[in-house]
Design a protein around this nucleic acid. Sequence first.
DNA 1: ACTATTTTTTTCGAGCCTCGAAATAAAAGG
DNA 2: CCTTTTATTTCGAGGCTCGAAAAAAATAGT
Lengths: 414, 414
Amino acid sequence: MAGAITRPDDVRRQNRKLVLAAIRRKGALSRTDITMATGLSASTVSAIVAGLVSEGVLLESRDGDGGPIRRGRPQVTLMPNPDIARVGVVNLSLNRITVALVDYAGGIVADETADVPTRSASGGDLMAEIGAMLRRQLQSTAGNSGRLMHIAMAVQGVTDAAGETLLWAPIMEERNIGFGPALARAFGVPVAMANDCAMLAEALRWTAPERYGGDFAAILLSYGIGMGLYLKGQPFSGSRSSAAEFGHMAHMPHGALCRCGRRGCIEAYAGDYAIWRNALGMPDTAPPISSIDAAVFARLAERARTEPGVEREAFHIAGRAIGFGLNNLFSLIDPVPIALVGPGAKVFDLMEPEIRNALSGAFGWGSNHQPEIRCYPQEHPLILQGCAMTSLLALDAEMFSAGEGRSSAQISAA
Amino acid sequence: MAGAITRPDDVRRQNRKLVLAAIRRKGALSRTDITMATGLSASTVSAIVAGLVSEGVLLESRDGDGGPIRRGRPQVTLMPNPDIARVGVVNLSLNRITVALVDYAGGIVADETADVPTRSASGGDLMAEIGAMLRRQLQSTAGNSGRLMHIAMAVQGVTDAAGETLLWAPIMEERNIGFGPALARAFGVPVAMANDCAMLAEALRWTAPERYGGDFAAILLSYGIGMGLYLKGQPFSGSRSSAAEFGHMAHMPHGALCRCGRRGCIEAYAGDYAIWRNALGMPDTAPPISSIDAAVFARLAERARTEPGVEREAFHIAGRAIGFGLNNLFSLIDPVPIALVGPGAKVFDLMEPEIRNALSGAFGWGSNHQPEIRCYPQEHPLILQGCAMTSLLALDAEMFSAGEGRSSAQISAA
DNA sequence: ACTATTTTTTTCGAGCCTCGAAATAAAAGG
DNA sequence: CCTTTTATTTCGAGGCTCGAAAAAAATAGT
């Protein structure tokens, strides 16, 4: 409530951020374009851009790239200077680590995926592997671009609100792993860690702002069920943990056994292991299996499509659970567009009728709950993109908006 | 994402708001106190306060009120000028309209409650009654204070996100009633309409900031079940409606009949009519009765306390439903302190064990869901207070923070 | 009574920032 | 080579906050 006080310098910082955001959205903009996009006066834009160029944050490009030849002084295009900084991107999911290096302009400098048995690995093991991968990439690409200035990490699990500690993850035994501080110490840069679904949401918002520019939910259906929420233009998170644990809302009291240890969670009906369990006619208290081969799962879906039976019913049960959860979610936050991401999106056709059915009961006030649902089967590219955006926006906001003082001194271009 | 641009004037506006907020929190402050409370420099505070005093927003009081006699130039106390404006406060609940007039310092100028059969009334009827009550109060207190400048209205029902239209209310048949625009037209002032639970939350936050200064939920257990949420220092609302419909989360698929027309809502197990239904051994599809006498309900609770039986079981069922809802809520937003408000708070002892029980299943990441729960049996004073705060803060922010231009011209002090 | 001390508040100049208007730069057209 | 057009920079005005110094207004002490 108190709020921070405002000083004249804050005005400049705020407007610098505005300029950088506009350029990042469009990729490249002239000063005139920035004037129109931000509403700032031409003189102010001129001053701000001059500062950013002299600090090396932006690059001027005089060659009009393909625009129609017009009379008058040609516009000078401004774009992020790729070599001013790099950011590290890490995605930790079941038995798989992906590390990438992205330059300040968003270009991928390096990209590597390693298979690692996460279930049996300790936090230290994973930390060492991630550190080694990132260090290798930094070395192999040294000299041709700026120094590492930020790391964003996506994990399949519950993180604390500060984005430092992985509190619990279905993909491994150990708990309370401080990946954030560890990475920060190892590489001397700020680290943002978040649930992979939060990164998903960030990426979707970025790639399809016309659809996901407002409120929406990204639901990841893979090994477990997660959700990333954007509300009022802000990523939603709990006060202590990353929260938004859609998959662990209670569907059935004393119901099926969930991997989180409780019973009756939505995930215990709609997670891949749950569908597997039901499709094989196992009791719903059977312990969740740890990993399901994609091809095997695809065959299961195929059988469910071709003939009625226990397999098809398993998908229906999953659909009902998801629909139930969406229904409750929508009771709390109003219906929003939904993005279904990951392997589960490939079998959406098998679940959609039950999902829609669960949502069909209209409230007295008539707001129909039927939302727009879109499917995105490939989650990994989106997660990485979300991490990259998170890091780059953090750089825009924290580092380069601060002005002359620190940044230009810290940055050493090659 | 785009965000508004910032100009030097915005700095002054922001800091004026800061000063006003500090004074409203403490009631009366000297310039030195403001300096410490806001972090602004003494010179800036001096300039801002001079403006506010010359506009008549603040009043200087030279008589040191009881403070220990100290050396040095005595502090001049600044407080809101009660006569600079008044705000109207309206609470519409089942068969009851309360209207009050509050001055800019928060003092109650007039207060009146009328019994009106809301179920059979039309929106126009209610609007006419509210208008008449408010107009009467304005006339009877004319001359001794400022003109009406804002109205806040709390309703037991679902409103749109803009705070203009009552979309649906359990207390009446008609839907989509535009109380907001109607009041605004009738009195020529901005109107903020919201769910009564949102106002509740506002009041609690105000009266006990040490407990409710952060995230918390206020749950109103009366004729229906509502919730007001504060998250990250912001009142939570949906994108289209007021949302946060805790009472209409789905507890049991195809379960008990709810007053909203659907089945299995939490309210259909924990609303007063649901408890009544269960305590009398009626089927849970029996139509909800429209109103329950407080004394009768109290006798019911007394019997449940003294002897086991169907009455006690009815309260247990209610507790389970509420606990179930809290469990799901906490899956989405992390556990937060809970304020139980209204008649239902009087029977909390009968429900608490089942509520706690439903919350006892810990997640894998160990965050225990047991929240701090406090009871506030009297909802009406809190709702009115919340309305008053809403209006006064709106005045602070919108009108007086704008500076010289408009406000001083519009205000006519008696 | 009068001066010294203490505390609060105001005044003043420096340093930011944004903006509009005017000036300058850099192209195509004729 | 001059005119027109469009983009960008320069310049002065007007705000705002801040620190330092000055002024105000009381008590304490002699």
